[in-house]
Amino acid sequence: MEFRQGLAALTAVAAVVASVTTLPSPATAVAAVEVGPPCVRENLRVPAGSWQAIKVHHTDPSGRFQIAYATDTDWREHVIRWDNGVPTNLGTPAGSLKEVNEQGDFVGNASSEDGLYRSTAWRYSDGQVSTLPGLPDSVQTIASAIAGDGTVAGWVRSADGQPTAVTWARDNTVRALPGSGDSRAIDVDADGTVIGYLADKPVRWALNAQPEILPGYAPGPDTFWDLTGISAGVVVGEEYTGSSQLALLWAPGTAPTLLARGAAVHAVNARGSVAYEQVYENKQWLRQNGVDRTLPFGPSPFSIADITGLTDDDIAYGNHYSTPVRWICA
C-alpha cells in the first residue's frame, strides 16, 4: 500500500482493535460459476454542446444521479450531473470528483496551486461548494465517499505526513476515527459503518466503535489489500501477494470469500451483487445471485471500458472509451 509500517505500528494496531477472531484457512480453489445472459449496454444522454469526452465517475445507489467530467472541444472541463437520465452542465469543476449520493450531493478534492500538491476536500450541495475542514494539525484533506445522509468519509494529513481517517457530518463537522497509526477511510455505508486502512491493514469501523481488522484470505509477509467499497455491510476489494491478485468479499462476521483470481472489484450493492473485471482477460462481469453476467463492451482486447458505479437495481455505470454508458442487468 501507499503507507507501510513496521512491527511497532502493527503492535499498536493490536492494542486498539476490539477483537480479532482466528478464522480457518479457506480453500484455494474457485468453484465454477454459472454464466447467465449478458447485460444490455446503452449510451447515456449527453448535454447539448460539442464534447471531446464525457467520463462518468459515480452513480448513487438509487440510480437517480450520476456525475461526470466532460471536456469540450475547446479543452475546457465541466461537471455533468444526471437527474433521472437528464444531464445538466454544472459548470467549471472545483477539482477531481469522487461520489454522489441519493440527494444529488457530491464530493471531490481540489489541488493547491502553491506547488506543494496538497488537496482540499469539498462538498457540493444545493448549488454551493463548501470546503471540508481538517483537524487542528492537518495541512491536507481528502474526501473519498459520501453516504445518503450526507456523511463524508476520507482522511486528513498532518504536517509530518501522517494520515488520519475522518468523517465529516452533514454540517461539515470533522471527527477522527479511532486507532493508533496511519489511517485512511475510503467508503461509508448507509448505517455509518466506514472501511479503510489502519497501519496498512484493511479495517472496518462500525458506528462509534473501535476498528475491526478484516482477515486476509491467504496472506503472506508481503501481502497488501485494496478495498473498493461497502454496501449493506458487505465489503469488497482485492488481496495482493506477490503476483497473486484475488478479488474478495467480506460479509459481516465471516471469513473472506474468494470471488475470482486475477480480478479487480469495481462496486458492490445492497443486493450483494458485485461488478468486477478479469484484468488479464479484458472481461467485465456482474456477479448476481451467484451467476455471472457479462458487461459487454466489444471484442477483447481492442475495446476499452470501465465500471465506475452500481445501483441497487443492478444497473452498472461507466464508460466505453470516452462515452458514458450503463449496463442494465435487472
Results as ranks from 00 to 15, higher is better:
L246P: 15
P296R: 07
T323W: 03
I307S: 11
S244E: 10
L286H: 04
L259S: 04
Y240K: 05
P301Y: 03
Q288R: 04
T254K: 11
L295Y: 03
S322R: 07
E239W: 10
T254I: 00
P256E: 14
L246T: 15
F302R: 08
P296C: 02
N289L: 12
G318Y: 06
L248S: 14
Y280K: 10
D313F: 04
E277T: 06
S243W: 09
Q278I: 02
G309T: 09
A330Y: 13
L246S: 12
G229T: 02
I230V: 08
A263I: 10
A232C: 09
V265I: 14
C329W: 09
G237Q: 11
G233V: 01
A263P: 12
A316K: 06
Q278E: 00
D314W: 03
V325I: 09
W285K: 10
S322W: 04
G298D: 12
G233Y: 00
P296W: 08
L249I: 09
L310R: 08
R271C: 06
N282R: 01
P256V: 15
P324A: 02
I230M: 10
R326K: 02
V265G: 12
G290E: 06
V268A: 10
D312S: 12
T241A: 13
I315G: 00
R326T: 01
T308H: 11
G290Y: 11
L259C: 12
Y321E: 12
A316D: 08
A316F: 12
A232F: 05
Y317I: 12
Y280R: 13
L259I: 15
S322P: 01
D314A: 02
G253A: 11
A305K: 05
I328T: 11
N282G: 01
F302N: 01
L248G: 13
G309A: 07
A330E: 08
V279C: 07
N289W: 15
W250Y: 08
D292G: 04
Y280C: 05
S244D: 11
L259T: 06
P324V: 07
Y321D: 10
P301D: 07
R287I: 10
S231P: 14
G229Y: 06
N282E: 00
G253P: 14
E238Q: 15
V325A: 13
L259G: 05
S243Y: 07
A275T: 09
S322Y: 00
G272S: 15
H266A: 14
A251E: 03
K283G: 01
G233M: 01
V234W: 03
T311N: 05
T311W: 06
H320I: 03
L248K: 12
P324Q: 05
W250Q: 02
P296D: 09
K283N: 01
L259R: 13
A247N: 13
D312F: 04
G309F: 03
P296K: 07
A255V: 11
E277I: 02
T241P: 14
V325K: 02
R326Y: 09
V236A: 05
V268R: 03
E238A: 06
T308L: 07
P324R: 00
